[in-house]
Structure formats: structure tokens, C-alpha cells
Design a protein around this nucleic acid. Structure first.
Lengths: 227, 227
DNA sequence: GTTCAAAGTTAGGCATGCCATAATTTCGGC
DNA sequence: GCCGAAATTATGGCATGCCTAACTTTGAAC
């Protein structure tokens, strides 16, 4: 029996690079600058350059020197697989184990790289093949399809606007805790009551209470606007 | 603020060595031979020797050259912590996610090294601070106490003996699957019906059915004998 | 006590993986 | 065509953990 040219299992670093490229390519497929990648992963551009070269050799990315990286189909698959792991884990940890909303990200960040396909499947089934994680991020389906809905930021809305808060980046625990403490979670409907200009806070009514949402926070909160 | 002389997090290999030393020292504290360690971990004696030296330098073991290794208190703690992770995970995977009995070991083997203390705690609480894993192995308590009950092997019993099957090593999936298929699990009461000499099979009645248990299997099944 | 095999150790290397600094090249707008 | 920014290469370091080969120690047999 001839030995297959077995692909070695991707390392954690490789998976992180694939995820980062995916995220920076606007969840799609345009080219990503080495420097942007380096910054996001907190390494020097030289290191990122070297890794990108490796991803290319591994067939996970196409690297046009001086012109950025793109994921290949296989690279995209890898990225989506890891993201599926991450988001399923986030939801699972929150729902089944009661890990606080603002803590699930860090746990998932580690576990995503070691989750077996078998466990992934059991978790997905147990959760009923969910489509979004606790932060409102879409979970790639079993066959790695993902639907990224275009959204607005809450900060962009003027007083009188109504909508639904649908999503927020999972990477800033402080913002998450702040929102969690106030009972604001993806899925909540709101109405903009007031807004200060120049990056100032928005005042939004969620249920009965009006909350003050600082400019930075408001610009991270993704919303669907009621038309 | 002066920097603490922070101990670097133990690597997976270090944790595995600590576990192996613990297991080979008869769940206790006598010295373990380098070669035995090497064999169990499937490395050469030279490699084991080098690693043992490192454990010593890390303060996890005491290595008396040519006279074996023992775990220090810290090493023992580390081993028990990892074992607690492993066994809690085994039970959790089996109970909460429905991972088959004969598969939980391999999954736990990976996850034990990355489980955070927070998750460990949530799992322990969710399971109600269990004392045994699905194979009947005792789970170290929160403060890392562990009670290893002395047991006999089923193979050592003569016809007429009655007892309870309490434990079997988790590391051989084939045996586990064999038992699982026959509905034999730790906790089951049995009676020895017949036994062939010279490592031959034992015939044991579990419930209504009499099962044939080959010599090797029977000698791995730990039992409490009814007095 | 000497001897000798087994057990154990050291010496020296190798492979992987990932990062860094420094020096150089390329790009693209002006 | 020049120039600064972006990116790349060239080199090297460090951690891990394994191996083989050669040596040392131990302890039991005699």
C-alpha cells in the first residue's frame, strides 16, 4: 500500500494565521497585508512574512510577494473549521456549563484547536445545530457555509431609529461584561433616544431602561435597523 | 512590584511524565526505574533519563541517579491535578455528551492538558463532585486527595465466589468495547461459575447471563469480593 | 572480591516550530 | 525617477523533545 503524502496536522499557530487572514480579508477573500496580519497576531512583520510563506507552501494560502495573502480553498476550509469549533464551543460553554458570557471567548480560543471532529459533532447535535454563538456571530454550518449578514453599528443611528442588537465582537471582555451586567445581549430590541455628536455616547432604550453607550462601545455593537 | 520567579506552565510532556511516574510508583511514592518509565512512555531510556533530570530541576521530582525517581509534593500535585482532569473529563464526556465508554479515554487524554481550572470546577459541580470515572477509577478530590481501594482481579477468583466488578483500566479500547457490548460495566455484581486453569477463561454470571472472560481480560478486571 | 550484564547516564545531534533583529528589496505615489 | 513605507530575506536564537552511541554504575553471581 503506497504511503499517502499525508498532510501534517496544522499547528496552533498555523490555524491562528488562517483565522486571522480570514478575518482581515473581510470574511471573504481579498488579499491581506502582511503588516496588518503581523499587527493582529502581535508579531513582527518579518515573522508574519515567514509564516505566510509557510502557509503558501502548505497549500493553505497564496502569497503574492509584496501584494498580500489570500486563503486557498483549503485554507478557507481550515479557517472556517476552526471558527466553527470556536463558536460552537462558546455557545456550548455558555449554555451547558454556565461559563459567563464574557469568559467564553478565552476558553474557546484554546479548546478550538484540540476539539475532535467527533466531539464537535456531538456538541453541534446537542445544541441543535445552532446558527449563532452567544455574541451573535454566525456559526459555519457542518459543510462550512457561513452567512455574514451586513449590519450597521449602533453608533451610526440617529435618535428615533429602532432596531435589534445582533452582534458584538467576542474579543473584548470588558465590553461584554459591561453589557452583560446591564442585561443587554444579542437579540435585544432597542430604540435610540438621543445621541451626542463627535463620537459621543448614544442613549438607547432596551426594554424599559435607557442605557448610555459610549462612542467606542456603540460603534462595536452591530445592529439590524428596523425599516 | 517585583516580578515573581514565575514557574513556567508545565508542558504536555512534563505532565505525562508526572502521570507516568505516579502510576508506576504504585499510586504512591516509591522510586520508579528509568527504564520502566521509558517503556511506558514509549521513548528510549536515554530520553527518559534526560526528562527525569528536567523534572528534578523543575522541582517536580527527586532524581537519585541510578536509583530511580520519585515525585516531590509539587510533582505529586501536578500528577493528581492532571488525573483529576482526565477522570472528570471521562465522566463528563460520557454522561453529558454521550461519548461511548470506550472512546472517552482518548479524548480525555488530550483535553486533560488544556482544561482550565475554571472549567474543571464547573464540570465537577455539574457532575456533583463524583468519586469515580466511568471505568471505576477514583477521581482525586478538589484538594487532590485520592483513595485507591485495594482490589482483586476477577481472574484470581475461584468458582462460587461472588463479588462486584468495580474497575478496569481505561487504556485498552478493545476490552472496553467488548465489555460494553455485553452490558458489563463497573458496579455490576457477578458470580464465578467456572474457571479454566493456567490463564484460561473465567465464566462469570452477570445478571442472568454467563459470560466467558479470557484470561487476560479477567486479570484486568478489578473486583471487590463479597466476604 | 571480581566480574559482567543490565540498568542508567552523558554526549552529541537532529528536527520542528516560531519568533526576533538587521539589512535589503520592492512598490507605488508624486 | 525618487522616496518613504511596506515587505522580504538572511541569520540566528531558543524551547521542546526525541534519537544513537558510548560510557558508567550497580548489584548479584560466583
Amino acid at each position: 500500500m503506497p504511503l499517502e503524502p499525508k498532510t501534517p496536522a496544522p499547528t496552533v499557530a498555523v490555524e491562528d494565521y488562517a483565522k486571522a487572514i480570514y478575518a482581515l480579508s473581510h470574511d471573504g477573500r481579498d488579499a491581506v497585508a502582511t503588516t496588518a496580519l503581523a499587527e493582529r497576531l502581535d508579531v513582527t512583520p518579518a515573522s508574519a512574512s515567514a509564516m505566510v510563506k509557510r502557509l503558501d507552501e502548505m497549500g493553505l494560502a497564496r502569497h503574492a510577494p509584496y501584494h498580500g495573502v489570500e486563503l486557498t480553498d483549503r485554507g478557507l476550509q481550515l479557517a472556517l473549521e476552526v471558527i466553527r469549533h470556536h463558536r460552537l464551543l462558546e455557545l456550548y460553554l455558555a449554555e451547558s456549563l454556565g461559563v459567563p458570557w464574557d469568559r467564553v471567548h478565552d476558553e474557546a480560543e484554546v479548546l478550538e484547536h484540540v476539539l475532535s471532529e467527533e466531539l464537535e459533532e456531538l456538541i453541534a447535535v446537542k445544541l441543535g445545530d445552532p446558527e449563532r454563538d452567544p455574541h451573535g456571530d454566525p456559526i459555519p454550518s457542518r459543510d462550512l457555509e457561513i452567512v455574514e449578514l451586513p449590519t450597521d453599528t449602533l453608533a451610526s443611528l440617529e435618535p428615533g431609529a429602532r432596531g435589534r442588537f445582533v452582534r458584538i465582537s467576542d474579543s473584548d471582555p470588558h465590553m461584554l461584561r459591561y453589557l452583560a451586567e446591564r442585561g443587554i445581549a444579542p437579540g435585544a430590541d432597542f430604540e435610540i433616544v438621543d445621541k451626542q455628536p463627535f463620537g459621543g455616547p448614544s442613549f438607547a432604550r432596551f426594554g424599559d431602561a435607557v442605557h448610555v453607550l459610549g462612542g467606542e462601545l456603540a460603534s462595536r455593537m452591530r445592529v439590524e435597523v428596523e425599516r
